[in-house]
Design a protein around this nucleic acid. Sequence first.
DNA 1: TCGTCATTTCGGGCATTGACGAAATATGAA
DNA 2: TTCATATTTCGTCAATGCCCGAAATGACGA
Lengths: 112, 112
Amino acid sequence: MKQDDAIDAFSALAHETRLAVFRLLVREGPGGVPALEIARRLDAKPSTLSGHLAVLKRAGLVSATRRQKEILYAPNFGSVDALVRFLLEDCCGGDAAACGSLPSIAGAGAEP
Amino acid sequence: MKQDDAIDAFSALAHETRLAVFRLLVREGPGGVPALEIARRLDAKPSTLSGHLAVLKRAGLVSATRRQKEILYAPNFGSVDALVRFLLEDCCGGDAAACGSLPSIAGAGAEP
DNA sequence: TCGTCATTTCGGGCATTGACGAAATATGAA
DNA sequence: TTCATATTTCGTCAATGCCCGAAATGACGA
């Protein structure tokens, strides 16, 4: 992961509606939710939400697939994993044990 | 974690310099690095960097402790952990197995 | 093909954020 | 106390992000 990609992802999540969208999709799981249903559930205007979904998609956080007339949005769990790894890369100069459980758990310490 | 706290954290990380600062501190570990040294290493103006450090601190991502004349900044690993948990909360409606390894690993699925 | 539903694109207007230098504050040493 | 180092605060400027309605596009069924 490049720094710019990480910034795109963090920027995408740094917004009330977009964060709510992503968390909604996470709760729903890989099956996906149609755009208009997301708008309905979050009480957002379809045009505004469409822009937010585009941002999330450009950041790689969600993926979109068409099912008939609808477009289903689903979360991309791998992108979260990559983001955390990037954030904690080379944690504590390689001594991951010094940083608590998450870094080693996420595999973000120095690779042996 | 509240949604607003998560947004503060994501906003803080959604910036080239601030993200570089945080990753630098992660690499350095819990010992901490003085503000001016961070500025020197990242080639940033001290006044500009001071603002960025304040943003990171307000977001709970770093902590500051004074050592003599200097102020040492260190990463707050717990905040990253909380952020990931918040992001993946109730993943896949509780069926964490459906989402890949990270959610269950991070303890972000539905609590049994 | 035609109409309809689902979604996206576009343009305008408002608010927020970021960079920088100069000056202010805080700490330790002589 | 007085000086020097370390860091923060402040004011100004430019740039970016966001919301919304109206219109355009895409896909399906009659």
